[in-house]
């Protein structure tokens, strides 16, 4: 018997509309982390879970009208963002995402460089050429997840949407209400943090 392929978006939507339990199981398992990052970025961690619940209700209500102009996950994340912003407005709080981003802050510690800006403590050559080789190292996957977990929520959101989910930067900016230049700075800082963690792991 052929197993159901929920990664096929059309099939997934059809099954969700038919209230297939496994389809709901798939979206909760695969979308929850990104939804949580987006909600935390906009409303903070205390009420992020409540925002997710409100967003799920909106998703189920609006699903029959989903037109497929973006991926289902992108559409769901946009709904999370709208729910979070509505919640902020209700509580008369300002949307703080993207505020106070200091673009001058270095992505690597200053002590890695000499006064003239050239490397003092330069990166060593890695004897690894592919992601599969890197991920085959015991403990490295957990280290990457742990490092993402330690990032500020806005960086968690951006790196997971861009590098793990493959969303376009323009879409990410709309979801988080962050300017393109700020989101690029934040994405690069997050990547640099993960690079540093892998570099340390290699030592």
């Amino acid at each position: 018997m052929k197993t159901a392929d929920y990664s096929d978006q059309d099939f997934l939507i059809k099954q969700l509309l038919e209230s297939d339990e496994n389809a709901f199981r798939y979206v909760v398992s695969h979308y929850h982390q990104s939804m949580l990052y987006v909600a935390k970025s906009i409303v903070g961690p205390a009420i992020a879970e409540e925002v997710i619940q409100e967003a799920w209700v909106s998703v189920i209500k609006a699903l029959p009208k989903f037109e497929g102009r973006s991926s289902l996950k992108t559409w769901v994340l946009r709904i999370v963002s709208n729910s979070a912003k509505t919640r902020l407005r209700k509580e008369s709080r300002n949307i703080a995402v993207g505020d106070a981003i200091d673009v001058e802050v270095a992505c690597l510690p200053d002590d890695r460089f000499r006064e003239n800006g050239h490397w003092g403590s330069a990166p060593q050559h890695w004897n690894i050429a592919t992601p599969d080789e890197l991920l085959s190292r015991d403990g490295l996957k957990d280290l990457i997840y742990k490092t993402i977990d330690s990032l500020p929520p806005i960086q968690q959101s951006i790196i997971s949407m861009r590098d793990m989910d493959g969303l376009e930067m323009s879409e990410i900016c709309k979801i988080l209400d962050v300017s393109e230049s700020n989101s690029r700075v934040l994405l690069h800082r997050a990547r640099a943090k993960i690079w540093q963690a892998i570099e340390k792991f290699q030592d």
């Binding site: 695969h30 929850h32 990457i144 793990m164 990547r191």
Partner: peptide
């Protein structure tokens, strides 16, 4: 390599 590795990772499941 870091970016390509991230693209191979699935989000953490609850």
């Amino acid at each position: 390599l870091t970016v390509n590795t991230l693209s191979k990772l699935e989000p953490v499941k609850p």
